[in-house]
Computed example of a mutant assay.
Amino acid sequence: MRCVILDDYPGVATSYADWSVLEGLETQALREHLGDEDAVAAALSGAEVVVAMRERTPFPASLLQRLPDLRLLVTTGMRNASIDLDAARAADVVVCGTSSLPTPPVELTWALVLGLARHLVPEVDAMRRGGPWQSTVGADLAGATLGVVGLGKLGTRVAAVGTAFGMDVLAWSPHLTDERASAAGVRRAGALTDLLAVADVVSLHLVLSESTRGLLGERELAAMRPSAFLVNTSRAGLVDTDALATALQQGRIAGAGLDVFDEEPLPAGHPLRTMPGVLATPHLGYVTEGNLRTHYTEALADVVAWRSGEPVRVLT
Rank of each mutant, 00 (worst) to 15 (best):
A191I: 01
S211I: 01
T57C: 06
D8R: 09
A199T: 12
Q65D: 14
D86E: 15
T294Y: 00
L279S: 04
C96L: 05
R31T: 15
G285M: 03
V50F: 02
R71Y: 00
A13L: 07
G143L: 09
L292I: 02
G155S: 08
V161H: 14
L230D: 06
A29R: 01
H205R: 12
S227E: 09
Q28R: 14
P102K: 05
V21D: 02
S45Q: 14
A199R: 08
S20L: 02
L284P: 10
R157H: 11
P276C: 01
L300T: 12
G35H: 12
M1L: 13
V186P: 13
P105F: 02
L170R: 15
L221H: 09
T145E: 03
V21I: 13
S100F: 00
W172T: 08
G251K: 06
E310C: 07
R31W: 04
V207T: 14
T294E: 12
I253G: 12
V148D: 05
G162A: 09
S227Q: 13
V50I: 03
A88Q: 03
M78A: 13
V260H: 10
V93F: 00
A305V: 12
V201M: 04
A47M: 01
L85E: 02
L248T: 14
I83Q: 10
M127E: 11
A61N: 07
G131N: 03
P60D: 04
R219F: 02
P267G: 08
L34F: 05
L120M: 13
A299S: 13
G35L: 12
S99L: 11
E23G: 15
G150A: 09
L266D: 08
M78F: 04
G97H: 07
W306A: 11
N291H: 09
L195P: 15
P226Y: 03
L70Q: 03
V106Q: 10
V231P: 09
G77I: 03
G269D: 15
L206M: 12
N80F: 03
T193Q: 07
P174E: 05
P311I: 07
S227H: 06
L44P: 01
S308R: 15
A189W: 00
S209A: 14
R213W: 00
P68Q: 06
